[in-house]
């Protein structure tokens, strides 16, 4: 594929209000193919709001969204899927009463004239689970009887259904063990190798630095700095997140996760 010329996803001047609260003000974001963009910021910085706008779960009050240079609107999650956007939401967004196959294909079921193509969906599910080398015993297991880590791998497996161009991961490692986190990061790298554009929302600086190419900082709903991961120092990033002058930021111990920074 080589390096893509234009950005895959461009968001320009995005604003979103909830009543009196300005969640996002004039936010810009660009994601290229073969790129992992980390979206970081303190609590209530607007990260999840931005992710939900990309995912079609929220519509912005103003602003322009372009995919491959074409202006688009993303009014619903189904529209996002059709535009090639796959999202893993913070709280997993899975149905515990349905089995693994049903969750993987939820909202995008394969079907004939009347009947769902259950056999075909289960076959693909097994392939995807094998690719993720997950330890989920059966594609027919109801989600309710899986562990948190197994559920997370189902949520992530959803990004392999269809052929998305852009993957949004909202806190994908929040509830995972060290080993599980490593596997999620490997999966993100795999997605990048496949030429996808990835937006990674995380509180965990170690994860962000391990896997991202670029770091975009949001603070109080506004852009507050953009860094090339390789060249950025913790101090610079933390300063951008907290809005503190750099001298202040130096007092924070390096390597702390950002959630520890108030």
């Amino acid at each position: 594929m080589g390096v893509a010329q234009g950005p895959l996803l461009t968001m320009h001047g995005i604003s979103k209000r909830f009543g009196a609260v300005e969640a996002l003000t004039d936010v810009d974001l660009e994601v290229h193919a073969h790129e992992v963009v980390a979206l970081i910021g303190d609590n209530a910085a607007g990260k999840s709001t931005l992710a939900k706008i990309v995912a079609g779960a929220l519509t912005p009050d103003s602003g322009l969204i372009e995919i491959n240079g074409e202006a688009v609107t993303i009014p619903t999650p189904a529209a996002a899927y059709n535009l090639g956007i796959a999202t893993v939401f913070q709280d997993f967004a899975l149905c515990e009463n349905l089995d693994v196959t049903a969750n993987l294909f939820l909202g995008r079921e394969m079907h004939g004239a009347l009947r769902r193509s259950d056999e075909e969906m289960e076959r693909i599910t097994r392939e995807v689970l094998d690719r993720l080398a997950s330890r989920i015993p059966s594609a027919r297991t109801p989600l309710g009887s899986l562990s948190a880590g197994q559920r997370q791998s189902v949520a992530i497996a959803r990004t392999l259904i269809g052929s998305p161009r852009i993957v949004v991961l909202d806190e994908p490692t929040a509830s995972l063990s060290v080993g599980q986190t490593a596997e999620v990061l490997t999966h993100i790298e795999r997605l990048r190798e496949m030429g996808l554009g990835i937006i990674l929302i995380s509180h965990n600086m170690t994860d962000v630095r391990a896997v991202s190419d670029r770091i975009e900082v949001l603070r109080l709903g506004r852009n507050n700095g953009s860094f090339v991961t390789q060249h950025a120092s913790y101090e610079e990033i933390i300063a951008a997140i907290t809005g503190a002058p750099r001298a202040d930021a130096l007092r924070h111990p390096t390597g702390a996760t950002l959630s520890a920074v108030s």
Binding site: N97, A102, L106, R108, H111
Partner: peptide
């Protein structure tokens, strides 16, 4: 066996998840 039936179960299981997954 139909998509509609699956969506009814999904909504009852987790309405928010179903909505975010693209179920109308």
């Amino acid at each position: 066996r139909t998509v509609f039936g699956r969506h009814i179960y999904a909504i009852g299981g987790n309405r928010q998840a179903a909505r975010l997954s693209g179920v109308s």
